[in-house]
Design a protein around this nucleic acid. Structure first.
Lengths: 159, 159
DNA sequence: CGCCTTTCCATTGACGCCCATAATTTCCCA
DNA sequence: TGGGAAATTATGGGCGTCAATGGAAAGGCG
């Protein structure tokens, strides 16, 4: 498997360390990045995390702007400037910085949530309510889609 | 890691010395430049800093203009003319010149901010407000992008 | 000869690295 | 297919090293 999937909740120990779930570690291992690339998610109280795949995404975004342009400097500041590469110890654990923890409201436990090419780290309570909300939206969207398909089929459309 | 990422705030001591963050030092070490290449950022109260990678970028920028052209002379003056190479002591510290400190409004503490191939040195307060502003811009662009994609999908475009 | 800068050493607190343990989970074989 | 052994995971703690910082000694320049 080379995608991050499923969600696992784990506790921080007295030193603030937390194990990266084993399934995520194998994906990271395949990716080849040394450490864990992290930054505060732009529009939600969570941490985006991953390896080279995630960093290249950021790099590509910034690379679109011309050097020394106003936009490029601002994007680099907001993206690279808030990124961190956390060290992973021999047991597969990381220590989240205070900045990251504050952004996500993390205290003593976290939920790792797979998002394909990257994953997010949430405060478990916030994750569950966010998940409930997202599930509602997806349900609504799904029923909307199926009714559209039903309508297309009813009028004889084929593909 | 061969990129400058994250931000670290450190204090100047009584002699005006300040440690370059260890993570930045390793990137500089890999870059191979002896010392720290610095100049006042062109359009903001910050100091641009880096090694060979930064110098080549400037060289490339100036090289785009035709020799002896007015623009070339001006760029060369603004960039090369204001550049300094700071000495790094045995403990990885530098002393910022008064010119640089005045340009950035630095007094007793600085924030080192990674921008990928280079990093910037800010007065911590100014950095935080600049970061807030830049983050807003990135958020705006992100939502703009996602709504464009939504629109494309809605009108049936495929790729 | 004094001042300023550079180089060297000291402290302390944090962090990286190592080993130990317990609870799973996986695997194997009867 | 069930039971048990082995490997893996999550977690706890100890200890040495390094980073950040402060200060003193040494060297150069006016």
């Amino acid at each position: 498997m080379n995608r991050f999937v499923s969600n696992i909740t784990l506790r921080l120990d007295s030193k603030g360390r937390v194990s990266i779930p084993a399934s995520f570690r194998t994906v990271l291992g395949r990716d080849g990045f040394d450490g864990l690339y992290c930054y505060p998610a732009l529009d939600r109280p969570a941490i985006d995390a991953g390896g080279n795949a995630l960093m290249s995404e950021i790099e590509a975004l910034i690379g679109r702007f011309t050097p020394f342009s106003e936009e490029r400097e601002q994007f680099a500041l907001a993206l690279y400037g808030t990124s961190e590469t956390l060290k992973v110890d021999g047991e597969g654990r990381v220590v989240l910085s205070d900045t990251l923890k504050r952004h996500a409201g993390i205290t003593d436990a976290v939920s790792f949530v797979g998002l394909g090419h990257k994953f997010q780290i949430w405060e478990p309570g916030r994750f569950h309510s966010e998940l409930a909300e997202a599930t509602q939206k997806v349900r609504a969207l799904k029923s909307e889609l199926s009714s559209q398909v039903a309508a297309r089929n009813a009028q004889g459309a084929r593909e």
